[in-house]
Amino acid sequence: MIAERRHWATRAWALMKGLPLAGRIGFALVLFWALAALLGPSLAPHPVGAVVAMDVYGTFTAAHPLGTDYLGRDMLSRILHGARLTIGLALAAAVAASVTGTTIAILSATIGGWIDEGVGRLMDALISIPSKMLALVMVASFGASPTLLILTAAFSYTPGAFRIARSLAINVRTLDYVQAARARGEGTGYIAWVEIFPNMVNPMLADFGLRFVFVVLLLSGMSFLGLGVQPPDADLGSLVRENISGLFEGAPAVVMPALAIASLTVGVNLLIDALSGRSSQVEQ
C-alpha cells in the first residue's frame, strides 16, 4: 500500500516535471488549493465568525496577513473556511454534472434510434438556457440551500457535459472496433462501458476540470449577487459581497477573496491545458 502510494507520488512528480512553466504554475496552484480545502480550516488562526480586530477593513498586518473584514474579522481565516465551502460545493456539483452527462450520453449514443434523438433534442433545449439564467430561475423557484445549490449547478452544467460526451461517444461508436463488438453479439452495456467509455476518459477528465471551473465561477457569482450561499455560511463569493462597501477604501477584504477564486480557476485551467497539450503530443 505504501509502495503504491510512493509510486503515485513519484508519478505525479515526474508528470509535473514534464510540464511547461504555465502548467507547473497551474499544478502548484491546484495543489495549494487542494491542501487549503483539506486542511485550511484547522490551520486558520482564528475562528471563522470571531471579531478579532478593532479595525474594520484593515489592511495587511502581521496579525492579519490578509486584512480584516467589515466587522473586523480575520480575512485569512474566513478565506480558508470559504475556500473549503466553494471547492466542496463546486466539486460535488461538477462530479454530479459530469457523471450524469457522461452516463446519459454513452447510453443514449449506444442505444441510438429515437431515444438518442429525443434525448439530444431535450439537451439542445437545455443548453440554450444560459447556465447563469437557469441557475437564477431555479434559485427563484426553489431557494438556495447548499444542497439546492449543488443540484442547481449540476443541472445547469449537465447538458454541456452531455454534449461533449455524446460527441466523443458518437465518434467512438462509428469506429470499427465498436462495430466489431456489435458483430460479435455484445450487449449494449458491454459496448458502452468496455468498448466506448475507456476511450473517452481522458477528454472527459479534462472536461470535468473545465466544468469545475465553470461551477466555481457560477456559484461565486450567485453568492456575489446574494443568491448563493446564505449567511452565516460564507463561500468566497459571499466574502466579496459582504465586503463590497470596502471597495472605496481600497480594502484587501474585497479583492483578496476574488483573487483567491481567480487563482483557483486559473490554476485548474492552466493545468488542464498543459496536460491535454501533452497527451495530444504523445498521440501524434
Binding site: 469506429l175 470499427d176 458483430a183 460479435r184 453479439g185 468498448e195 475507456p198 476511450n199
Partner: peptide, 24 residues
C-alpha cells in the same frame, strides 16, 4: 441472432488501425 450464430460468422474489417480498441 443466437450467440451460436454470432460465433460461427466473424467479420474482419479493413482498417487495422481502428479495429482494435486502443484502450485494451
Amino acid at each position: 441472432r443466437t450467440k451460436e450464430q454470432f460465433r460461427r460468422i466473424q467479420i474482419v474489417f479493413q482498417n487495422a488501425d481502428t479495429v482494435l480498441n486502443p484502450a485494451h
